[in-house]
Design a protein around this nucleic acid. Structure first.
Length: 282
DNA sequence: GGGATTTGACCTCG
DNA sequence: CGAGGTCAAATCCC
């Protein structure tokens, strides 16, 4: 166990260093003397370090760690933007965020709740790179703003089952709490080439059962309808102010190795996720 | 005219 | 029984 701890710590430290170097490169910090390393290399290093870390944890028999590890491995080929979303989720999903339930229709008004394929996101806009059709809205108890219900426009012609719920945050009215249900099965490709690269995507707060990488690409901040005139809904949100979600993580975990060594082996999982999110964002 | 949105009713769940 | 999610007719808009 002691040996495993040390290996895990070394692996995580390596990942942290790579993340830090990657951050310096992306921020244009030329003081970093590792500039000869490519972004791809660093990304791979970060991904592998944390995948290995999670594997070590999963090998201890904790099934939930194993699942997280598998998901992480699957997402190791994500783009940097996707990785950010993933890492943020890894941390924040433990923040007692209640996993929403997918309702499976069984006739009008008859729904069976089931968990899975849900993802919560905070974004500066309710829009993303998919086409959505609003099918309802509801005033929510103790909430100043109504919740809007959307389903994929291609539900009828392509049977796409993706849905999302959008609710304006009370304390931050310029931000939206978006819950995605299910994955897009429509063949319309996400249209996100207009996304300003330095704008951070919306923060994924929860990420359950989302195996479809495509779904990760919906974290755009500034999106519009695919090759179509803007909908009324989208016009309404056209004044959303992007770019203010950058201050997500606060203090740095520069004393990570000490923290880890003082920690129970199994507590590393939580710390790892939180730390990785912080490192990736700072 | 057709697609998108609005809105009140309906239904399930806790 | 209240809250939340969905349906579908009515309405809007291009």
């Amino acid at each position: 166990m002691e040996k495993n701890n040390n290996i895990l710590v070394q692996t995580l430290i390596r990942g942290r260093d790579s993340a830090k170097r990657l951050q310096n490169m992306l921020c244009g910090d030329t003081n970093d003397d590792h500039v000869s390393v490519s972004v791809d290399d660093l990304l791979t290093d970060v991904s592998e370090s944390f995948a290995n870390g999670l594997s070590m944890l999963s090998s201890t028999g904790r099934s939930e760690v194993h699942q997280e590890s598998e998901v992480f491995k699957r997402n190791c080929e994500m783009t940097p933007t996707q990785c950010q979303s993933f890492s943020a989720n890894a941390s924040l999903s433990r923040n007692n965020e209640k996993t929403p339930l997918v309702l499976v229709k069984q006739g009008r008004g008859q729904y069976k709740r089931k968990s899975g394929d849900t993802r919560i996101e905070i974004s500066n806009t309710s829009e993303d790179c998919y086409q959505w059709r609003k099918y309802g809205h509801k005033t929510i108890l103790n909430s100043k703003f109504p919740r809007c219900y959307y389903r994929c426009t291609h539900m009828n012609d392509q049977g796409c089952k993706a849905k999302k719920h959008v609710q304006q945050l009370e304390d931050e009215p310029n931000k939206f709490h978006i819950t995605y249900f299910g994955c897009h099965t429509c063949t319309i490709t996400p249209h996100n080439d207009h996304i300003v690269p330095h704008h951070r995507p919306g923060v994924v707060l929860n990420f359950e059962g989302f195996k479809d990488q495509q779904s990760l690409t919906t974290n755009s901040l500034t999106t519009k309808k695919i090759g179509d005139k803007p909908s009324r809904k989208q016009k309404d949100h056209a004044n959303a102010t992007p770019g203010s979600s950058d201050d997500q993580a606060g203090s740095s975990h520069s004393v990570m190795s000490n923290d880890l060594q003082d920690m129970d082996f199994f507590e590393h999982e939580d710390f790892l996720s939180a730390w990785f999110a912080d490192t990736a964002f700072n």
